[in-house]
Design a protein around this nucleic acid. Sequence first.
DNA 1: AAATTTAATGAAAGCAATTTTCATTAAAAA
DNA 2: TTTTTAATGAAAATTGCTTTCATTAAATTT
Lengths: 157, 157
Amino acid sequence: MQRWDGYGSPWWHGRFRGCGYRITVPRRIILDVLSKTSEHLSAEDVYVAVHKIYPNVGLTTVYRTLELLVQMGLVFRFDFGDRKARYELAMGPKGMRHHHHLVCTDCGRVVDYTDFLDEEKELLSRTEVGLAEKYNFTISNHLIQFYGLCDKCRVKK
Amino acid sequence: MQRWDGYGSPWWHGRFRGCGYRITVPRRIILDVLSKTSEHLSAEDVYVAVHKIYPNVGLTTVYRTLELLVQMGLVFRFDFGDRKARYELAMGPKGMRHHHHLVCTDCGRVVDYTDFLDEEKELLSRTEVGLAEKYNFTISNHLIQFYGLCDKCRVKK
DNA sequence: AAATTTAATGAAAGCAATTTTCATTAAAAA
DNA sequence: TTTTTAATGAAAATTGCTTTCATTAAATTT
Ligand SMILES: [Mn+2]
Ligand SMILES: [Mn+2]
Ligand SMILES: [Zn+2]
Ligand SMILES: [Zn+2]
């Protein structure tokens, strides 16, 4: 699952070195936790998972590291409406995996989807160009989320 | 700018009455503040603006009222990434005005746009149908935001 | 126009997520 | 090794928002 750089280190070591950041135990573990899940973890979730492996890591460090990773572009931060941040690795083992989200407003379930992305991509890039021109923005990113009820929650109502 | 119902009351009085809600001074003022701006105000922003007109209104009431207005569908709540909610009237004088956003990640400036909405709508509804089917979701809403640098912030860098 | 009812309000306390502070630790450079 | 300094963890602080509860004031009834 993990990718190595041919020198015996995980692929992200170079990124850290390049920025002058140190490679520490907490950082290693946090990246490990994130790379082993497909869920959208909160800082607390990460803390709990990390804690199982190495109980000395503090919640503060988890917050700090997640922030750093977001800054570095290795991790995406999302807000699905429950006013607590969710984190997710920006690039999987197979490289970038930009995707959009489907969020259940009742139970909070989040589904990643990449289907329909081709058509979307088409339109989005056209839209980006148009918007950039008209409003003088340099667009670097976009966020698309659909909200609704998942099957289970629909039945409950 | 304000619209009346022909009986001397603002258009939203009916909505309130219909739901059994009372028309109070704080509610009147909060709606007034929201209808007089094109910005995306935080609860605090609303509080400050309201306070100038009528200093007796408390922050609690601002929060409660905004929540109520969101519930009623008169106001939209957004999160542009700075973990504080922003509010905006759902319908302008010219009726519903669903729109999307362009957000500057540096200065936080937010631009509304309605261009390209037709094309987007087209694609979105198709996407919604597809997603609904595949993932068994009942989709009721979507959020689209583009992130980047506004002209001023691009120059600064 | 009172009196009555009860939803709405404001101040204060509470809360959860996140950030700051600061003394200590441990990567990495020398 | 020794030295340097970024990173850490515990505790305290801050932020945005919610809850509680006694008081007030819309709206309804008299
Ligand atoms: Mn995802
Ligand atoms: Mn807007
Ligand atoms: Zn659900
Ligand atoms: Zn800007």
